[in-house]
Design a binder for these strands. Structure first.
Lengths: 198, 198
DNA sequence: CCCTCAACTGAATGTATATTCACATTAGCT
DNA sequence: AGCTAATGTGAATATACATTCAGTTGAGGG
């Protein structure tokens, strides 16, 4: 059989990428080593040359997720100087991420991670906490330039900000894309934005 | 062996109750027929005299969940006449539900339902939609008595309301109860409440 | 070109789980 | 008490996985 071989460095990347796609389309429930191997185009046992086990693949997926999230933040920060605009754009980017490529919520809502191995849990917690801390620093920035009321707790605002998206994402998923996530988030944002203005 | 027998009507209730407790403590991942049977005190095969299969047990759990949620709503509605007070108390009750007895988020975030059998998905969607519609009618009530700005979309407000709790619940779980859910929700509510006041 | 080693294969193993079935036991009616 | 149908049991079956391993193959340096 003519089977192409790749350096493990390359394969790891291919496998991680395939895992993200698989989770995005099938969810954690339908994510298994055989399916992953098929997606990559190798035998299941080949995966084990590049990853110790399934958990390690999941780790790689979480890394990918974190890079994606923080990448969003960095990219938005560089696009506009106004904290409120940054937040609005971040929200839009976040919606795109959830609606276009649903790996994130599927991982977030998955018990394999959420209620599974404690290492994955704390890894996921770190990712969310870091994201919240990035958000909080944008809110703080906004307070310094007097665009946001100074007495509000930036961390609490960051958590609220996530709340603008999260139930929306769930509804969007449960309704098979019928629920208008974009409109909901826009309405939520306009109420939220006005509430935090001085 | 002296094994007590029960009418199927009673057993169904016992089994459903045990299932809810099991899911609350172990999550969907650790919820299996053998464990359920052990919790009830019967052999695994006995379950099948009362439920066709695991899916039917899950149905019963979802029923339980729905009753609990709508029960919260009805009880709060009868306790105070002011829509804003009703909402505040509902939020508190919701926090209690999530923090005290974590079956709800564990089910909500579980792929077994979220990404599983489409009947479960639409069942879950119905539950959430009904809850949202109850919330929306409270918001509408508030608009009628001029406690809430009339131009805001009640359904959108209902979804936002859920957003006050949901990321908080996730953080609470991921941090093993360390994150102060109550305080976060209070802060979120006070910002939200002020934002929707005329 | 060929040799070596990392990359790969296919089959085997082990485990966890839902579900079924032939048989046993209990509750409750007459 | 004795009968009967509902309720329960234990063992067997089936499936879906992750993971391992002995051997095979291809790519790149000598």
């Amino acid at each position: 059989m003519s089977v192409k071989k790749f350096a493990t460095e390359i394969r790891r990347e291919q496998i991680a990428q395939a895992a993200v796609e698989l989770i995005a389309s099938q969810g954690m429930k339908g994510f298994n080593m055989a399916g992953l191997a098929r997606q990559v185009g190798v035998a299941p046992s080949a995966i084990y040359h590049h990853f110790k086990n399934k958990d390690e693949v999941i780790e790689a997926v979480l890394d990918h997720l974190q890079n994606r999230l923080l990448g969003n933040v960095r990219s938005v920060l560089s696009m506009t100087p106004h904290p409120l605009d940054q937040l609005k754009q971040l929200l839009a980017a976040h919606v795109e991420l959830v609606v276009g490529h649903s790996a994130m919520p599927r991982i977030l809502f998955s018990e394999d991670i959420y209620g599974g191995k404690s290492e994955h849990r704390s890894r996921l917690k770190d990712i969310i906490m870091r994201y919240i801390s990035e958000l909080a620093s944008i809110f703080r920035q906004g307070q310094q330039v007097r665009s946001i009321r100074p007495e509000l707790d930036p961390e609490a605002l960051a958590v609220m900000f996530l709340g603008l998206l999260q139930p929306t994402a769930i509804l969007w998923h449960l309704s098979d894309g019928e629920f208008d996530a974009k409109k909901q988030v826009e309405k939520g944002w306009s109420i939220f934005a006005e509430a935090i203005r001085p």
